[in-house]
Every structure is written in C-alpha cells, then in structure tokens.
Write a protein that binds this DNA or RNA. Structure first.
Lengths: 330, 330
DNA sequence: ACACACATCAGAAACGTTTGCAATGCTGCC
DNA sequence: GGCAGCATTGCAAACGTTTCTGATGTGTGT
C-alpha cells in the first residue's frame, strides 16, 4: 500500500541500505546507482516514514512551543516566526495552548514532550523544581521565566518603558496610572521596571491591580484613572489599553486630549485602534529567532554561550499620546 | 537511559508483552500481575514511545490543521477549540500556517502529512485535482472550499447577512457599500450571499474590490464610501471594518451617526473596538467540533452522514450601527 | 481419570528506517 | 603477479511497541 524504502529498493533493483545511503549520504554510492535510486524514489513519490526514522534515530525533528493563550494577539506573530525559523532548520513546530492553567500545562507537557526534541515554555506557571527537573530530561528554553540552570530568553521592557516615560514627561505629564494585569503569574519584572523608570524620572505613579490581563480590566480601570486625576495611563498590555480606551470614550474623556494611553506589546490591536495606540514594541521575530536557535543548539548538544538572552523593546509613539491639556475644562 | 517497556517488564518481573497488555488491555491479565505492572510503570514514570507505537500501529494520534494566517484573529479561537476537541479524543493537533501562499501550502502539506492521521484544510488555495488526489491518500476535511467527493465544513453567512440587511433596513439605510476583501481566493460565496440578500431586500449595494483582507483595504475604502453617498458599510471581515472605522474617524465622519459599519467574523477586534463593532458571528466552537469530529470519523473509516456540514451565522448588533441621520448636516 | 476449555503468560514477528560490518571486485603499486 | 587499499554494495541488527501464536497450568464436566 504505502510506498516504503523497500518499494524504492525493488524498483531500483538495489537493497534498502543502498536506497537509504543514496538519499542520505549520496557520496557513499556510485553515481549511476544513485541516479537510478533517486529516479525511482521520485517516480514512486517516496517520502520517509517519520515514525520509523524517529524510532531509529531517537530524534523527532520537531520542537514544541507552549504558550498561555493563543487568543492573545501577541502570540500569533511569534508562533508564525518560530514556525518559519524552525522550518528553515528542518524542524516542525508543535504549538500547544495551556489556557493559563497550571494543571493543563503539566498535562500538555506530558502529551507533547515525547513527540518533540525540545520545548519552548512561555511564561510557565509551573513551580521552579518541576521546570528544573524537566530541563534535566530534555532541552528546554524558558521565556519570561527564570529558573537557575535553565536557558532563558528574557524580554526586557526597560528600554521601552524608559522611552515611554520620557515621552510622557516631554508631553508634560506628571501623574500616571499603571494598570497591572499580571494576575498571579510568577514574572513580576514588568511592574518592577515600570516602578523604577517612573522613580528615575521623578514622576508620580499610581498602581492598580493586579488583575487578569483582560479587556474588562481596562474598562474597570478607566474611571479610576479619572478619579486619581492622572493624565496618562500605562497598561499591562495592548488589550488592557483597549479596554481603557473604550471606557474613557464612554465616560466622555477624549484621548489623547484629556488622557494619554500607552500599551505594551504592539499587537495588531494597537495598529488598528482608533486612534492608533502608542505602545511598547517587542519584536516577535527577534524573540522567535533567539528562542528557536537557542533550543536547536541545546538539541544538538551545543550549550548556549550565555544562559540568558536579553531581548530589547522600544516605544512606538502613535495616536493615543499627546501633550497634557494646559487648561483642563472642568 | 530512557525508560522503555522493557525496563518496566524487568522491574515487574514479567515479559514485555505482559506489560503491554496490562496497560492496554487490562482484562487479559491477572489482577495481581496487572497491579505489579502498573505500579512499576508508575514508579519508573513510563510513558510509551509514540514513534514506536506509530510505527507499529500505522497511526500517529495526531491531526493536522492548515490555515492561511494565524495572525488573522479569527483563527486563534478556532485553533484553540480544535485543540481542545482533539485532545479529548486522544489526538494532538498540529497547526501550520501556509501564509496565504499556494507554494507554501504544498510544501507544508508535504512536511506535515506523514506526521498526522488526517488534515483539516482551511480555505485551501490548491487546485481541485490536487485536493481530490490528496483526499484519496488520506482523510481530509475541507473548510470553505468545495471539491466534489471530499468532506467539507461550510460556513454559511446567509443567515447572518440576511439579519444584517434587515437590521440596516430597519435603521432606514438604503444604500450600502460592500468592501470585498476576498483577494483572488477560490471561495466566492461571501460576496454572492451579500449580493443576493441586498437584492432580496431591495436595497442598493455598491461593491468595491476585491482587495486583500487587510486593515489598509478598509482605510482605502472609507473615502469611497462617502463618495458613493452610502450610509452603511459591510466589510469583508472585522479587520477591514476596523480600517474603515479608523479612516472614517480621520475623515471626520462619525460612527454610527453618519455611517454605520458592519464586520464579519466577530473576532476580538470587534469586541474591543470603540465603538464596539456590529458584526456577523461565526461560532468557532461549532466549526471546530464539526471539523474535528468529521475528520476523526474519517480516520476511523466512518464515512460522514452528509458530505458537507453547514455552519450558520448570526448578527451581533453592537455600537457601530444606528439609525440613518434624517437631516444630514452638509 | 481424562479430555477439554479457559485463563495467563512468554516468545517472536513485524512496522520502516539507519548503520555497523562484511563481502565483493577493482585499482594501483611494488 | 600478488597484495593492500578502496569503492561499492548487501546483510542484519537495532530502535520500542503491539499482537499473533503457542505453551503451561488450572479447573470443569463426564
């Protein structure tokens, strides 16, 4: 039924081992026979059975990517870039969505780990010892989660936030609200960077939250921004910023006339909103490349040069930030 | 190194075949030995090697999903639902993004087809004969693409568009622009349904396009809407609608005061826009369930009851539609 | 007591591939 | 002319699993 290496061997009048060599290590076989073999393989439409090859080789030529929620528009471009990057190096990328639940994450890892040669775990919620233990057994690259001894790609918002702070300061803003949407996740670096940047610039920061990073969180935060008499909002991500934007409009506050809004992630949402959203961009291609290359390096037993790779960020000024109103019409 | 069925056998003091039976067909083994086996398996943390199992069984317990562009916010919820549905039936879902290019699609299918038991192809751009040929070789379910003899899930916009038309008519709209963002894809049913619905309600329809389904398409279309003196816009999808919304605001037209806007797909974009976007909803869970169940049926040699499954749609009225202005202030 | 069914388990084959090892024939060198 | 070495190829093992076949023992009915 299916066309195996045996069929090709028979068609070309050689043994299976010769077929295998002709296709994998062409130098080891006579030019004439090689040609017969590839012709036969071509004619029969032969492609090797990956299960058999995996079994023999102990490698699957696949990588796994575990993300909290593919529905968050931040992730699709990253997935796409990783898939592209992996494909160019001969790997298939297997994504799984852990749905933000620790239990699901464990289950998914169990289901997927044997089908791949390595894993990229994005903002894993698993306890540190489990991650360390997993990394013992197979190549693992963490993103936005720090565990001693495990390779990591870390997205640093420091630059982007510094730029956002300067940007707001230049527009005359003094008092800003940060809507923390980190929920109860382990990585607290986002709010920490923000606190430091505002301190450094001598600006006043009101933190509200932490809440879940949802649109409704922004909706909920909007009246608080007005109540705190802030003139600018920095949201945990673009989605939350959209909620703020939406509710500010409903409350009759104009953006950026009355209030400036800054998001984080530069997702599709930011570029399609009205007005378009000033946000802090994290380059998906860069994260994808670094994470995939790091992981493939680990698969090939090439330990990383540095245990943690830093990814930068930068402000993308757009339509939701502007000068603070001199004479606020009450 | 790795823990195989052999390790478990040795640890439990039985043969490999007994281990296999104890885990797969427990009825065939004595209760006492079964318990010893499962205890040993548990203790060693044994999980079967999927490559070996696939090789032996000829099945991979995986399904493939090929979509044009995961970056389109319509797809993530569908992927998520399909993954969930597949998981519950013991399958892993492998997604691949064909990036809207026919060449990539072929290549991706080649790379993925041997790793899965069946494929869901979303809006495939491949020629009919290739699809028919592929469906000969393996279980295939098409979505939004019709090929005789191949199973299909078809999203019908008929209901949703009819509702949208009535909705606009009730608000007094007479003249509407349809922004066709179908590009050069094979499936023309979207524009056809719209034409028919407007004809049936005696409303005037101006079609512009076809363009690619991008935000910029909507931006480009916005002034044309005003030029055509229409009071409503129906966009090919939510993303295009967002472009229209954005540019209408830039042109000083208020929504829904001056112009009403309707999208299609009910993506995240629709719910987070300001004002929130009236759109036609296609239930991702329903498509996902039907497609996955259909495909798994085919994998198990259960031919579908009907060759093509229809999925409905309905209007979700939100903030971008309203009554046409009686006295248009020039 | 004997045949027979049945429960329980071990052994071995098979899935498709790669690769170590050995066999063959040829070349070239002394 | 003989022999070492090399190019070329086939054979067989191995990867981990499932399942077919058969062996062994136990109980049952006559």
């Amino acid at each position: 039924m299916a066309v195996t290496i045996g069929s090709v061997a028979k068609a070309a009048g050689v043994s299976v081992s010769t077929v295998s060599r002709a296709l994998n290590t062409p130098d080891l076989v006579n030019a004439a026979t090689r040609q017969r073999v590839v012709a036969a393989a071509e004619r029969l439409g032969y492609t090797p059975n990956p299960a058999a090859r995996s079994l023999r080789e102990g490698r699957t030529e696949s990588l796994g990517l575990l993300i909290p929620d593919i529905t968050n528009p931040f992730f699709p471009p990253i997935f796409k870039a990783m898939q592209e990057r992996a494909k160019r190096q001969g790997y298939t990328l297997l994504v799984a969505d852990s749905d933000e639940r620790e239990a699901d994450e464990l289950e998914t890892i169990a289901a997927v780990s044997k089908k791949v040669d390595g894993l990229v775990l994005w903002a894993s919620m698993l306890p540190e010892n489990r991650l360390a233990e997993l990394a013992e057994r197979m190549p693992v690259v963490l993103v936005n989660r720090q565990v001693p001894g495990v390779s990591e790609v870390h997205v640093s918002l420091t630059d982007g936030i510094a730029q956002a702070t300067e940007h707001l300061k230049a527009y005359g803003h003094q008092r800003c609200v940060f809507v923390d949407g980190n929920g109860n996740r382990p990585d607290q670096s986002r709010s920490k960077s923000i606190r430091e940047a505002f301190d450094a610039h001598g600006m006043s920061l009101v933190e509200i939250g932490p809440y879940e990073p949802r649109f409704e969180t922004g909706v909920h935060a909007a009246p608080l921004v007005l109540a705190h008499q802030a003139t600018a909002v920095l949201a945990h991500n673009d989605l939350v910023a959209m909620g703020v934007l939406h509710q500010l409009a409903a409350l009759g506050a104009s953006v950026p006339g009355d209030i400036s809004v800054v998001g984080i992630d530069d997702t599709l949402l930011a570029s399609v909103s009205t007005p378009s959203l000033t946000t802090i961009r994290i380059d998906p291609d860069e994260i994808a490349s670094r994470a995939v290359d790091l992981l493939i390096g680990l698969v090939h037993e090439r330990p990383p040069a540095t245990p943690v790779v830093q990814i930068g960020s930068r402000l993308i000024p757009r339509g939701t930030t502007g000068p603070v109103r001199r004479d606020p019409q009450q």
